[in-house]
């Protein structure tokens, strides 16, 4: 019986098999890259806010402590966004004619909350708690980036599960002295020094490596 396929189809078969694998691999790689790219994760993306609030002005240049506005960050799961009254402690007296601040004044006048657009938000099936991270020596900027230089707030981390676990597996790489947690200008020492400091602090603060699923999914 004559062969159905001509010899040259061998090459065709090989090319299509390997080519197919290559394309699949390439696709997987591209998907992986896209999934981690700021374009997809929306890192660095600023949101439309009712007032163009600048951390660079307030936390950076004026040196206001994070807790002046994010009052509950040390003692509860939620850092808290400042109520209008907090803005008005200063803006009742300064920049009172600024048109940018009109929504703040209107909110205070009419007793209607300002609706800030969240830039960090986990899915509802994840449990997160600020207070434990603060009291174990994880600084704001470790997770949120250099907030004090942000003209408009953006998200620094991916907030993927791998992002959390990366630190939960090896906290010594990120921990800092408790006295520096709120310092937005803290520079961690480089490489080996951080590891040495980290190991010491992990022991001192009794930091566990929490990786059980029910730590975050409860």
């Amino acid at each position: 019986m004559a062969q159905t396929f001509h010899r040259s189809t061998n090459l065709l078969a090989r090319v299509s098999i390997f080519g197919g694998l290559l394309i699949l691999g390439g696709l997987a790689f591209a998907l992986y890259e896209i999934a981690l790219s700021p374009w997809y994760t929306e890192q660095y993306a600023v949101r439309q806010q009712p007032v163009p609030f600048s951390h660079r002005h307030h936390a950076g240049e004026l040196g206001i402590d994070c807790r002046y506005c994010h009052t509950s960050v040390e003692k509860s799961s939620f850092a808290g966004l400042p109520p209008t009254q907090t803005c008005m402690t200063c803006h009742s007296q300064i920049w009172t004619n600024s048109s940018m601040l009109e929504p703040v004044r209107a909110s205070y006048r009419d007793n209607v909350s300002l609706a800030w657009t969240r830039v960090n938000a986990l899915p509802d099936f994840v449990y997160f708690d600020h207070s434990i991270h603060i009291s174990k020596g994880i600084g704001c900027t470790t997770c949120h980036g250099s907030v004090a230089s942000m003209a408009l707030t953006y998200r620094r981390g991916t907030l993927y599960m791998s992002w959390c676990l990366n630190c939960h597996r090896q906290p010594e790489k990120y921990v800092r002295p408790r006295s520096e947690v709120f310092n937005p200008f803290y520079r961690p020492p480089s490489g080996e020094e951080q590891l040495a400091l980290g190991r010491k602090l992990v022991k001192e603060y009794k930091i566990q490596t929490l990786q059980y699923c029910d730590t975050c999914h409860r």
Binding site: S77, F78, V112, S113, A115, P123, F125
Partner: peptide, 21 residues
């Protein structure tokens, strides 16, 4: 369906109450 659960997180807005809080 699990990402957005029918519960209120802190500070969440609602249209159930008149003041939206």
């Amino acid at each position: 369906d699990m990402h957005v659960q029918p519960k209120y997180l802190p500070y969440a807005a609602t249209n159930f109450f008149g003041d939206g809080r």
